[in-house]
Computed example of a mutant assay.
Amino acid sequence: MTADFILDPGQIESESMKIIRAGLTRPWLDTDLPVVERIIHTTGDPSLESAIAIHPEAIACGLQALKQGATVITDVEMVRAGISKEKLKSLGGTVECFLNTPGVPEQAKAWGITRSMTAFRMNAEGLKGSIVAIGNAPTALLEVLRLAENPETRPALIVGIPVGFIGAKESKDLLWEHQEFPSITVLGTRGGSPIAATVVNALIYTVLKQK
């Protein structure tokens, strides 16, 4: 039965990427392709291509940040779990998620905002020069955009891909309106933690290939 299936992991990935690239309909820059291909590969959804939005400076800023050992900060543990930590560590970087930091629930209640917003606000000083990866919480993306207004708390790159029907589309639209901030997103309601993580991984793999 298995004779009809490709079983080698490397060949499976290679053949998958060939199929994805052959089906692309937009004139992507070569530098954007690793991110576009990984998003489609992770979701198995070629139609997602039309919703992918990559700021003209996003890839260069993300790669430069990783080369300088940037911290990746995520909104939820699921995004953090999906990032290649050992490969990131080899570049001098780490990945952090502050959502479950002691004191966050109490402070969120005191401020009257979500825990995901609170986690970023309480750790704002760590955002400067980082890569922020948001795959779940639209409110976290709104808070990051607010903090990014200050050069002292501005990330090098915002990967903003929250999913859902309440605030997700609107928060990503707002992100894309702020063209002063390099960003990568998937417009509309689609998104999620696996996509946010795979974008970061695509950037990590690109840096490692350039070494």
Rank of each mutant, 00 (worst) to 15 (best):
60 A>S: 06
80 R>P: 04
108 A>W: 13
44 G>Q: 06
52 I>L: 08
2 T>M: 15
33 L>S: 11
21 R>T: 14
32 D>N: 11
33 L>N: 05
17 M>L: 15
208 L>P: 07
46 P>Q: 06
99 L>G: 04
32 D>K: 02
179 Q>F: 07
165 F>C: 11
191 G>Y: 02
57 E>L: 14
167 G>P: 02
155 P>C: 03
171 S>T: 00
21 R>I: 10
14 S>L: 13
51 A>F: 08
60 A>F: 13
6 I>P: 04
143 E>H: 06
199 V>I: 15
5 F>Q: 12
37 E>Y: 09
133 A>E: 10
9 P>H: 11
144 V>S: 01
171 S>I: 08
104 V>A: 01
63 L>N: 02
131 I>K: 07
16 S>V: 14
93 G>T: 05
124 A>F: 07
172 K>D: 02
66 L>S: 08
167 G>H: 14
31 T>G: 05
166 I>Y: 04
35 V>I: 13
101 T>Y: 07
187 L>S: 03
102 P>Y: 00
158 I>W: 00
72 V>K: 10
109 K>F: 04
197 A>E: 01
110 A>W: 03
100 N>I: 05
24 L>P: 01
26 R>T: 03
29 L>N: 13
15 E>I: 13
91 L>K: 03
112 G>L: 11
93 G>I: 07
157 L>P: 01
124 A>E: 14
52 I>A: 10
139 T>K: 10
108 A>H: 00
149 E>K: 15
186 V>D: 08
84 S>K: 12
45 D>Q: 11
101 T>L: 12
132 V>T: 09
70 A>S: 07
187 L>H: 07
107 Q>C: 11
53 A>E: 15
85 K>E: 13
132 V>M: 03
191 G>K: 06
115 R>W: 00
124 A>G: 07
28 W>R: 02
15 E>S: 11
172 K>R: 02
66 L>D: 08
161 I>F: 05
22 A>K: 10
93 G>P: 04
190 R>T: 06
62 G>V: 12
17 M>E: 15
172 K>I: 12
6 I>T: 08
101 T>S: 10
133 A>P: 01
186 V>K: 11
15 E>K: 14
126 G>Y: 09
96 E>G: 04
120 F>M: 09
93 G>H: 12
188 G>V: 04
192 G>P: 01
198 T>G: 02
118 T>C: 05
83 I>M: 05
155 P>D: 01
64 Q>H: 14
209 K>P: 06
84 S>I: 14
152 E>K: 14
145 L>P: 00
89 K>R: 13
3 A>N: 14
151 P>G: 11
167 G>E: 04
209 K>N: 15
206 T>K: 15
159 V>C: 15
154 R>K: 14
104 V>T: 07
171 S>K: 01
143 E>I: 08
206 T>S: 13
1 M>L: 10
66 L>I: 10
81 A>Y: 10
137 A>R: 00
93 G>Q: 13
162 P>T: 03
75 D>H: 01
196 A>M: 12
75 D>F: 00
17 M>K: 15
67 K>Y: 09
8 D>S: 08
119 A>E: 03
49 E>T: 03
184 I>P: 00
160 G>I: 15
69 G>P: 04
146 R>I: 08
170 E>A: 12
33 L>C: 02
159 V>Q: 10
167 G>S: 08
204 I>A: 09
74 T>P: 06
69 G>W: 07
98 F>Y: 15
23 G>Y: 04
200 V>A: 05
92 G>P: 07
147 L>Q: 05
